[in-house]
Design a protein around this nucleic acid. Structure first.
Lengths: 354, 354
DNA sequence: GATCCAGTCTGTATCGATACAGAGACTAGC
DNA sequence: GCTAGTCTCTGTATCGATACAGACTGGATC
């Protein structure tokens, strides 16, 4: 069938090793013989060393995996994720490495197999929630990884690139609190696993399992605690998924009660845009002046005039990949905290006096 | 170091084969023994069969490659490409397959190696221009592939999913011609390899090497030929890359001559949006009423009111992946032509009377 | 009691390459 | 003329698994 390296060796009358060298270590044989070998290979239609066999023998693959919590298709729907991927891709490309996108479907056994079977040299773990098992699999495989979501049990020497979620969230919440808002709703994706969309009661923010969500909600709460608004007085809203639709669905009916919130702080821009969508759908006369904030500063946020927190998306990906591809000798250098910035736009304003 | 399958076998006191079966063919051994083996494996920290070794022996990898003409990072910059990828990802995910994004950097030797070394079972070839060598490598490797750009030498039995570029382009151009436009510029990415940005003279549309670009430009030309405007009377503009910036740069100075075009037909939405950007940047008094059209109908096109041709992006990716993952028995079914639709919005209007 | 069979498990060959030690040939140097 | 040192090339062991044919066991069948 397909010719192997052996076939080429036989055709030229040299050993397998020499043909291998012709491809992988040109300095190990004379230029003339090398030409003769490559010529014969071309003639036989030999496509070069089989990547799988080569990987097995060499011990590395030449590609890195990117792990997503949610479906693969989701990765391309969230603009922040896309920009992160672009960053990873850029660094990988510069390094001559491919990237394998590993879907983590809902069914754990399947997802587990996907991580176990991924032919990669390491993983960029984008936003793994309580899927601690995935990290266990990666560790068991002995593969390096870089995570982008702070986790409670993450050692300081575990490669990480991300932001101080709590402080960043606090900054935008402080802005909102400073505008006078006291009746406030916090909106996030998957506050609890499998919770329904809409209001949710939780004894404390520490009950939130997902570390990123926890950090952001805690930051929001910090700022309001400072102006005397306790956790129990805040309305907590759950969204089922990270999308505009989910954001809109989560605030359904929220503004129809007697004392509706005057501000909604969302854990991501897409959710916040969903809230704006929901507001825009109401008849013009019945549109409460709600302040809305997001998180990430995706391109659409600027167009929508959304107040948000900017975090460097491409750079996050770029650095994550770089940490993976050539790890710094100094372990501390493997822990990168990126800067964030509060971006104030039109979607927030002083609390109405009524 | 890392335990191998052999180590587990030794620990339990069974043969390698049996351990292998415990993972891959549970029906081949008793449930009790299987539990014992998996238990021992857990205890030893054995992460399951090595994916590379397994791939080598089994003869397939469990992932498909996606090939881009341009940089990997570009793939994430073009919304159409992102949606295509989302479609591929969705189908791959459903099939339990990962997707490998293969960068095709500028330097051909590197790019070639990337294709040769990609550990995949097949390729989705997205938009390969004159990089015929890539297809040669894929064929030499004996891997199946699906292409999305019509190529001249494509046999009818070569798996393909795409649109009738020429007819689709013609439809939008007919619309513009119907509005009375006769002084028209055609704008496309990489009309010729390495051409500078801006006006370009070409003896005929058949000189355009990139098949997609050729198809679209030819379609544009068809429509104008029908109303008596020949190829030589059309202004041809080259863009260096497929981005808003490239689109804006390509029309620099275009509207400052004595008889500027009244319409610009672009080969993609991003280029068209770039043209709109360039127009918006001019002082309000000096803004010629130019009709602009795009191609693809990306989400941003709707927001910008851009007249364009819609082609189903996700579906293109989904079908491409499906053709690759379970090829139809009937070769003719491997040639899919997707529908397109002219979408008229505000960016086109009747030619000004002045 | 011989035959057959299903259910389990083992052994050997194999997938397609690379690493590494070492064998010959050939030039240099003294 | 003999020892070193370079260049080339070869041979064998190995990477870590799976496929497949066959061996063994214990019961059902006639």
């Amino acid at each position: 069938m397909k010719p192997t390296l052996q076939a080429v060796a036989d055709a030229v009358g040299v050993s397998r090793s020499t043909v291998s060298n012709a491809y992988s270590r040109p300095d190990q044989l004379s230029a003339a013989l090398r030409e003769r070998i490559l010529g014969a290979a071309r003639q036989l239609g030999y496509p070069g060393p089989n990547p799988t066999a080569r990987s097995l023998r060499r011990g590395f693959v030449g590609s890195i995996g990117v792990l997503f919590t949610s479906q693969l298709s989701y990765a391309f729907t969230d603009p922040f994720a896309v920009r992160f991927l672009a960053g990873v891709g850029e660094a990988a490309e510069r390094h001559g490495t491919s990237m394998l996108l590993v879907p983590l479907s809902r069914a754990e056994p399947d997802a587990r197999r996907a991580v176990e079977n991924a032919a990669v040299d390491g993983f960029c773990v984008y936003c793994v929630a309580d899927e601690e098992w995935a990290l266990d699999v990666i560790r068991a495989r002995g593969l390096p990884f870089v995570s982008t979501a702070a986790r409670d049990d993450a050692g300081p020497d575990e490669p990480f690139v991300g932001i101080d979620e709590r402080a960043a969230a606090r900054s935008v919440a402080t802005h909102v609190a400073g505008l006078g808002h006291r009746r406030v709703a916090l909106l996030a994706d998957s506050v609890l696993t499998d919770a329904p969309a809409g209001p949710l009661t939780l004894s404390g923010v520490d009950r939130v399992p997902h570390p990123t969500t926890h950090g952001r909600l805690a930051g929001f709460a910090d700022a309001f605690a400072e102006v005397g608004v306790g956790w129990a007085e805040l309305t907590l809203l759950n969204a089922q998924g990270n999308s505009r639709q989910a954001g809109a669905a989560a605030v359904a009916g929220l503004f129809d009660g007697p004392t509706p919130p005057t501000a909604v702080l969302a854990g991501s821009d897409v959710l916040a845009l969903g809230v704006l969508d929901a507001l825009a759908e109401r008849p013009a006369g019945d549109r409460p002046p709600v302040s809305v904030t997001g998180f990430d500063d995706i391109p659409e946020a600027a167009a929508a005039g959304l107040t948000t927190v900017r975090q460097p998306a491409e750079e996050k990906g770029r650095i994550a990949a770089k940490l993976l591809l050539d790890p710094p000798a100094d372990a501390a250098a493997g822990h990168v905290l990126l800067p964030t910035a509060l971006v104030v736009r039109d979607s927030t304003g002083p609390v109405p006096r009524s």
